[in-house]
Amino acid sequence: MINWIRGLGRWGLGTFERLGRGHLFLMQMMAGVPSLFLRFSLVMQQLFSVGVLSVLIILVSGLFVGMVLGLQGYNTLVDFGAEESLGVLVSLSLVRELGPVVSALLFAGRAGSALTAEVGLMKSTEQLSGMEMMAVDPIRRIIAPRFLAGIISMPLLAAIFSAVGIVGAFLVGHGLLGVDDGAFWSQMQAKTDFYDDIMNGVIKSVVFGFVVTWIALFEGHDAMPTSEGVGRATTRTVVHSAFAILGLDFVLTALMFGDE
């Protein structure tokens, strides 16, 4: 019993210590961001590996999620004779929820895990340490550009996801199920608000990008410098990112849409 309580205590202390280190790490990262605008080519490189390489999975998933939404939404709406509202249903669910959340989950799986593995490997092969001894701060040179690239990429990816999803839903709704295309778009436009829906979705995705990249880089930087340690850190990145995304999504939704 005592051992059990002691274990709990140790777990708690460990968690708090990690949280503390994570926040210190965040401060160091943020401190490294301003100087990046002088050397934007570093960020450019990372925009490629973090953003561009995630586009394909985002495109494919977005298209299919949109198509499924179109199909499912139609089947439900047609019972009420409201299939004209398909556009609204699809655009609101994508722009408010699925776009930011699903693309953030995919981003955590595709880019987040890659970031953790990359940074963890650099740590375990002493590259970060070596850089420090060359008087180059690895946080500024390696971590901060990836962090900034993650924050920039995420909203762009989420926007691509939503746009492709809506097109997918339109293809299914109009092409396959025969929903009137004018009604599809006009109902959508009437009910989707730029500030309340689209901008809030963008804010969500920026927050998710921030959190996922932070978690991924911290896990990589904090990983045990062995191949097993890096592997475990990669898993942790995906799991913790998913928790963080879904938890934050609730909080953000409550904050932004709660008072309607």
């Binding site: 490997l121 650099m122 092969t125 002493e126 590259q127 340490s129 070596g130 850089m131 001894m133």
Partner: peptide, 8 residues
């Protein structure tokens, strides 16, 4: 460094 620590 022992491993060389080259940037890979």
């Amino acid at each position: 460094f022992q491993s060389g620590a080259l940037l890979t």
